[in-house]
Structures are given as C-alpha cells and as structure tokens.
C-alpha cells in the first residue's frame, strides 16, 4: 500500500467501517421496505402500490 504510506491501516479501516455502516443501513432499510411492501400487497389483495 505505497499509495497510502504509513497510515494505510487507519485510512482503510475508516473507509471500511463507514462503508459497512452505510451499506448496513441501506440494506436494512431496503429489506424492511420490501417486506412491508409485500405485506401490504397481501393485505390489500390486489394493488401493490399505494
């Protein structure tokens, strides 16, 4: 990692932690959105959106 020099570990871990947190947030939000959408579709019977 000559690109980052002596602090490579710090910089990489900062990016890793942030990206994992962001990805986790997006993934959880998305999964819940899909589940709720499916549940609503089931309850409403016909329409999927609205």
């Amino acid at each position: 990692m000559s690109l980052l020099g002596a602090y490579a570990l710090y910089v990489l871990s900062a990016y890793a932690v942030s990206l994992v947190l962001l990805a986790g947030l997006v993934w959880l939000s998305w999964r819940r959105a899909e589940r709720v959408r499916a549940a609503l579709a089931r309850v409403e019977g016909v329409r999927a959106d609205g």
């Binding site: 939000s29 998305w30 819940r32 959105a33 709720v36 549940a39 609503l40 309850v43």
Partner: peptide
Amino acid sequence: SLVILRTRTEIRVRRI
C-alpha cells in the same frame, strides 16, 4: 433517499 424510502415504509405500515 433513505428518509424517503423509510417514510414510504412507515406509511405502508400505517396502512396495513
């Protein structure tokens, strides 16, 4: 984006 997505989810939960 996330706030809108999550708000939509909450609205759907309400509707259910």
